[in-house]
Each structure stands twice: as C-alpha cells, then as structure tokens.
C-alpha cells in the first residue's frame, strides 16, 4: 500500500529475449498483412471497375483512404512514447499501426495511379472510336452518293 491507500503495481523486469519474442510476433503479421493490403489496393481497380464513373469513385475512395492513413501516421508520431521509458516491444506495438498505415498510403497512391491509367485508357478508346466512326460514316456516305 502507498500513501494514497492504493496498491502499488509491481512491474516484473522482462528479459530482452522475451521482449524480442513479443515484438517478433506482433510485428511480423503487421509487415506481411500490410504488404498484402498494399498489393491488393494497387490491383483493385483492375479487378472490380471498368467504367470511367466507377473508376472515378474508386479514385475518391483512394484519396480518402490515403488521407485517413496519413492521419494515423501523424497521430502515431505525435503520441509516440519516449524511447527510454518503455520496453522495446511497447514501441513496436505503438508503431505497428503507423507502419501499416504507411503501406496503406503507398497502396492508395498506387491504386489511384492504376485507376487514372484505366480512365485514360477509356478516354483514348472513346476518342479514337468516335474518330473511326466518323471516318467510316464518311466513306459510306461517299459510296452511297455514287
């Protein structure tokens, strides 16, 4: 009991190897999961969207996702504990969401680029198709005029 009448929590010192073990099992899934999310975000526009409208919506979603993830990183940095205060696995636990969010930001940028590429492809198709149809109609008109 202390002066305030509360029971003191006795913190047992952890061995460095135990800290590392915790860190390892926390950090590894975050790394792998983050990378999978990153790759999936990039190829997402190829899998699900084909029309320009859908792709435009997807681009907006990517922007929102990227900004949200950026906020997570910034908040993580602001609220990060000082290095000397905590065992190392606590630091890793704290930085894991920021790490994950960084991958989400990168994935959102990639996905945005892919969606833009598909939109450009659609626009190019429409442009050339219109040109082609116009020219073909002219040739047909020429034939009918004979």
């Amino acid at each position: 009991m202390n002066e305030m009448g509360k029971t003191d929590t006795v913190v047992q010192p952890q061995s460095s190897l135990l800290e590392l073990k915790k860190m390892f099992f926390l950090y590894l899934p975050v790394c792998i999961g983050g990378y999978i999310v990153f790759r999936v975000l990039i190829v997402l526009p190829l899998w699900f969207s084909s029309s320009t409208e859908q792709l435009s919506v997807l681009r907006i979603i990517f922007i929102i996702l990227g900004v949200g993830a950026l906020a997570v990183v910034v908040l993580g940095a602001v609220r990060a504990p000082r290095w000397v205060e905590k065992p190392i696995h606590v630091h890793y636990r704290h930085w894991a969401p920021a790490f994950f969010a960084t991958l989400v930001i990168l994935g959102s940028i990639g996905g945005h680029l892919v969606a833009s590429a598909k939109i450009n492809s659609n626009l190019a198709l429409e442009k050339v198709k219109a040109h082609f149809e116009k020219e073909t109609a002219e040739y047909k008109m020429g034939r009918n005029a004979q």
């Binding site: 590894l28 983050g34 990378y35 990153f38 790490f99 991958l103 990168l106 940028i109």
Partner: peptide
Amino acid sequence: AFGGAILGGSFGHL
C-alpha cells in the same frame, strides 16, 4: 530489416 524490406520494396514498386 524485414520491415524495411517491406517498406522499401513497396516504395520501389510504387
């Protein structure tokens, strides 16, 4: 290093 590879590889891929 593993985390760095993930981040570095992702950035390079981007």
